[in-house]
Amino acid sequence: MPTPYTKLVIEHFKNPHNVGEIENPDVKVTEGSPACGDMLTLYLKVDPVTHKITDIKFKSFGCASNIATGSIITDLVAGKTVEEALKITWKDAAEALGGLPPVKIHCSVLAADALHSAVEIYMEKEGLVKEKNPTKMETVFQKLTHVIDPNTGVDIVKSKIIKGVKIENGIIFIEVDLKENDQFAANVKEEILERLGYLWDIKEVKVSFSK
């Protein structure tokens, strides 16, 4: 059956590599949101001495090319150090798949974004970040745009449930406009901690709920 996809895309889509979860991963990130239609969760396990990626797995709620890109990008990363992995772009992934239809580019970007986020978080965690700029509000908000509000399906900045952010003496205070017992509150908190918890000059992240 001819489709706009290359044979390789279909091959990776039908039998994706590195699918699943990793127990106790060094990093787990989710990019995208169900509201925009594509979502990809990436798990990384990294060797603490060599900083080589020893295991990588993904899950996808996305289109065929999102699944194929997840598969190929996890292939490309295998055995590389985290710094090498940072250099892998969506173009590398698209090329490795023999090209993607133009309308599907954003799907490959999503997989590359997930990889970069995961590596950045790992590097922050391990103190591998070279340029140590003090954390500013901008950085915090930029990172929060990667956290999805499951109630609306868009990120928590866009959905306006961030009521207040304060950085004080190495502590980030975040006030979230959700009920403490909201079914997604724990989930949102966990994701915020994952995104902000490893900045080099931040000792603690305090998330409070205010509805």
Partner: peptide, 15 residues
Amino acid sequence: GIRNEPLLVALNERG
């Protein structure tokens, strides 16, 4: 739990 796009692509693969 799934998206329809990959489902339609995979169904198409099976005719």
